[in-house]
Amino acid sequence: MAFLPSTDPVRSRAFYEGVLGLTVSASDGFALVLEGGGTTIRVTQVETFEPQPFTVLGWVVPDIAQVMAQLAQHSVEFVVFEGMGQDADGLWTAPGGHRIAWFKDPDANLLSLTQYA
């Protein structure tokens, strides 16, 4: 099980269910429980928190360009890091050939997509 903080569970549900397509399995006022790709994600309501500068959750996808295009249709913006050498869409190709892109959820949790080489 993975855990994510959220200051607004309604907004998080709209993002994780409506944009990312995860299935809500429970919502109890304390947390939103999602299922996706065989992993349970518990989005826990918090009053305040400071987003971390590193990736907190990611998904392996078979076609990263296709998934990025689908997310862009939902106004998801991909993060471009200074000096990383990403392309114009925010896609980075690692030295070993893996392709990675980063984006943020509504609480600024840093998320990623990876397509293995």
Score class of each variant (00 low, 15 high):
Met1Glu: 09
Ala2Arg: 13
Ala2Val: 12
Ala2Ser: 15
Phe3Gly: 09
Ser6Pro: 01
Pro9Asp: 03
Pro9Asn: 06
Val10Asp: 10
Val10Ala: 06
Ser12Asn: 03
Ser12Val: 01
Arg13Gln: 15
Arg13Lys: 14
Arg13Thr: 15
Tyr16Gly: 02
Val19Ser: 14
Leu20Ala: 03
Leu20Val: 02
Gly21Tyr: 02
Leu22Trp: 11
Thr23Phe: 05
Val24Ala: 08
Val24Trp: 03
Ala26Cys: 12
Gly29Pro: 00
Gly29His: 01
Phe30Ser: 13
Ala31Phe: 08
Ala31Arg: 08
Ala31His: 06
Leu32Cys: 08
Leu32Phe: 07
Glu35Leu: 12
Glu35Ile: 13
Glu35His: 12
Gly36Lys: 07
Gly36His: 09
Thr39Trp: 14
Thr39Pro: 10
Ile41His: 04
Val43Pro: 00
Val43Gln: 01
Thr44Lys: 10
Gln45Val: 12
Gln45Leu: 12
Val46Ile: 08
Phe49Arg: 00
Glu50Asn: 02
Glu50Tyr: 02
Glu50Leu: 07
Pro51Met: 02
Gln52Met: 13
Phe54Cys: 07
Phe54Gly: 09
Phe54Glu: 08
Thr55Lys: 11
Val56His: 05
Leu57Arg: 05
Gly58Trp: 04
Trp59His: 02
Val60Gly: 14
Asp63Asn: 11
Ala65Met: 14
Ala65Asn: 11
Ala65Thr: 15
Ala65Asp: 10
Ala65Lys: 13
Met68Leu: 02
Ala69Asn: 10
Gln70Arg: 11
Gln70Val: 09
Gln70Phe: 09
Leu71Asp: 04
Ala72Cys: 06
His74Ser: 06
Ser75Asp: 13
Phe78Val: 04
Phe78Asn: 00
Val79His: 05
Phe81Leu: 09
Glu82Ala: 05
Gly83Trp: 05
Met84Pro: 07
Gln86Ala: 06
Asp89Met: 10
Asp89Trp: 15
Gly90Thr: 01
Leu91Ala: 00
Thr93Val: 10
Ala94Thr: 09
Pro95Asp: 04
His98Met: 12
His98Asn: 14
Arg99Ile: 05
Ile100Gly: 04
Ile100Met: 08
Ala101Asn: 00
Trp102Ile: 06
Lys104Ala: 03
Lys104Gly: 05
Asp105Tyr: 05
Asp105Trp: 05
Pro106Ile: 02
Asp107Cys: 07
Asp107Ala: 04
Ala108Ile: 08
Leu110Asp: 05
Leu110Lys: 07
Leu111Phe: 01
Leu111Arg: 00
Thr114Met: 09
Thr114Gly: 06
Tyr116Asn: 14
Tyr116Asp: 15
Tyr116Val: 12
Ala117Lys: 11
